[in-house]
Write a protein that binds this DNA or RNA. Sequence first.
DNA 1: AAAATGTATGTAATAAAGTAACAAGTCAAC
DNA 2: GTTGACTTGTTACTTTATTACATACATTTT
Lengths: 159, 159
Amino acid sequence: MTTIFERHDHGACAKEALARAEDLAAAQGLRLTPVRRRVLEILLEQHRALGAYEVLDRLAAEGLGKQPPVAYRALDFLVEHGLAHRIQRLNAFTACQHSHPEGVAPVFLICRSCQTVAEMDATGLRRDLSRLGGEAGFSVERATIEALGVCAACAGGAA
Amino acid sequence: MTTIFERHDHGACAKEALARAEDLAAAQGLRLTPVRRRVLEILLEQHRALGAYEVLDRLAAEGLGKQPPVAYRALDFLVEHGLAHRIQRLNAFTACQHSHPEGVAPVFLICRSCQTVAEMDATGLRRDLSRLGGEAGFSVERATIEALGVCAACAGGAA
DNA sequence: AAAATGTATGTAATAAAGTAACAAGTCAAC
DNA sequence: GTTGACTTGTTACTTTATTACATACATTTT
């Protein structure tokens, strides 16, 4: 499995994600407005999750909006359409790193040392979770799976 | 698998949990002070997660503390010793329903209709998650697994 | 092109959640 | 009965998030 923990061409990675967003917008008739697009770009700059107010500060510095709702609305839009994810543990947001065709939400790996947040496909895990819920008569609709730990680079570097 | 979604003697369920807490405190030399004990009792009254401020309001009504730190400290104590859990999706807390011998954190099933939060053992899921992380060189230390959906009773009742 | 409609943004105000810092009290051990 | 560790009280504040309403922009209808 390949994650963004590995060395990669980050510029290309961000560019691709933006292109995917544009394709999605075109395909689904969504409006990737300047604010929304800029928020996605800001999230794509780093592989760590940003708080809504960090995003807002950036927007404010560029004259794109000074009040919380501006940031929250754009972030909500991105999350709703799968272009970004909310990391519950951090009350923060990160750009989506892979395209998740259907409603296949990923698992997040959060490095507590470098703050990098990586996504991994977790189809199997989700199936198991649904099965587990099913045993209790519970119908799983959405699931949050977040792992906190240390990435290879940080584990190696700190050794 | 049996969860608190099923009919059960709630009084007994709460009483047992409290007894477990006392045993734990005795065994580990922890101080289950009046505030801490009362917070646990409050959480045990319902099988839904309570926000820190809901707990605080209850404490205040009983003269046990009026400021946020009082509630947060007690909640942190309970969480730290496995007597309660924090539900990330809800920014809320729920009493532990099973004793988790070691550091075996459970999975949470959150009914979006009746707000009940049930725990299930997820040893297998956690192992799979660790393995998945391992594939990316990531060492998982702690994991949050929360499922949002509908419990059997609500699905049946609403049908 | 003007009116009507739907959607997005701007703004103010406030709510909700969480923390820092320090003073004061409690309790067990010596 | 004083020391030291832990717990609680209190003030003040920070961070995160939402409500409500006004304004602007875009699209379709006429």
